[in-house]
């Protein structure tokens, strides 16, 4: 008896079926109809993932604000709650902005560089933006008519024309405000890195409904995380910065996973890491004009090997 089920489970062939006796056939048909009918089930439309995620965030925030905070955990929980709050207020801002666009017949221009691509654009005020791979810059209708504001997702190098109108870059982490200068803005997930080559830049993030800013001058950089105060100022360690303008990877205590993500963006490949090497941090300048030399120098550094099979790179 057991063998019938087994054959069925392993998709029995018609030939085997014909060899069954009358009684066996009957049993077989019963099991077969159970097997077939059990697979017929009409599944409804799956709820929207993004919406469900927002609902989950809201629920978690409510939970965490009523949750009893253990001593010693206070800072941790509080810090996290602020982040959730930021995420929601950011969405509110986006919705607000997009409504404005709708009123303006949504004449915004979106510049977007795909993986393996870099793009240079010149805006109506004469400012130049160079987009790194996988980056989107949105320029609203009416740009340079009383205001200069753009939205950035990804990484771009700005050469902003001097003007009395401030030039503001909105990101999901915070705002970067300038009057005229050259600087790089990189956003990755919920952190943002700003590095200034020339002039003065103000970085603003919104913490607990209040704006908080730092001023960066030439040669300085800082890192901010969404919902946190802008990070401390550092001196840019590299002569050629940002590296991507010079076909280089400039790394300063960068997580291996983030380095690999940069390489994926730059060369449009998929990289698989076999073991958990999460804690490795890398500093230095890598020549990144070709994939193989980049991968081999990286692998020498971390003491691993790699193989490339049709754009899928495995590090082992």
């Amino acid at each position: 008896m057991k063998s019938f089920y087994r054959r069925l489970i392993n998709s029995m062939t018609n030939k085997a079926k014909n060899e069954l006796s009358g009684k066996e056939k009957e049993q077989y048909n019963q099991i077969k109809s159970i097997w077939e009918e059990s697979g017929k089930f009409s599944m409804p439309k799956i709820p929207d993932t993004e919406k469900s995620w927002l609902n989950l965030q809201r629920a978690l925030r409510n939970l965490e604000s009523t949750e009893q905070v253990h001593p010693g955990m206070a800072d941790f929980v509080f810090g996290r709650r602020r982040k959730w709050a930021f995420a929601v207020s950011f969405i509110a801002i986006v919705l607000f902005i997009s409504t404005i666009f709708m009123f303006k017949d949504s004449d915004q221009v979106i510049y977007s560089a795909k993986k393996m691509e870099q793009l240079s654009v010149e805006l109506s005020d004469g400012s130049k933006i160079r987009l790194n791979a996988q980056t989107k810059v949105t320029v609203p209708d009416g740009f340079n008519e009383g205001y200069r504001e753009v939205t950035l997702k990804g990484e771009a190098y700005f050469e902003v024309q001097k003007s009395e109108i401030p030039f503001i870059i909105h990101t999901n982490v915070g705002d970067v405000t300038v009057l005229g200068t050259k600087f790089n803005v990189q956003t990755r997930n919920d952190r943002m890195e700003v590095a200034v080559n020339e002039g003065i830049v103000r970085v603003t993030s919104r913490v607990a409904d209040k704006d908080s800013s730092v001023i960066l001058t030439a040669g300085m950089m800082n890192m901010s995380e969404s919902g946190e105060y802008p990070g401390a100022l550092h001196v840019i360690q590299f002569k050629q910065y940002p590296g991507w303008l010079y076909n280089k990877l400039t790394l300063q205590q960068t997580n291996l996973v983030e380095v690999l993500e940069e390489i994926e963006r730059r060369f449009d490949v998929n990289i698989r890491l076999n073991a958990i090497e999460d804690s490795i941090k890398i500093s230095g300048i890598f020549e990144a004009s070709n994939l193989d030399s980049t991968m081999s120098s990286l692998c020498i550094l971390i003491g691993k090997a790699y193989r490339n099979e049709n754009g899928v790179i495995t590090i082992y």
Partner: peptide, 26 residues
């Protein structure tokens, strides 16, 4: 980069909200 579940869970254990979102989306 497609991170496997083991890495994701390791990150979630360290309260990485992005990793949690990736897991949720998946």
């Amino acid at each position: 980069m497609q991170q496997d579940d083991t890495i994701l869970i390791t990150k979630i254990k360290q309260s990485d909200r992005n990793a949690f979102k990736t897991l949720f989306t998946r």
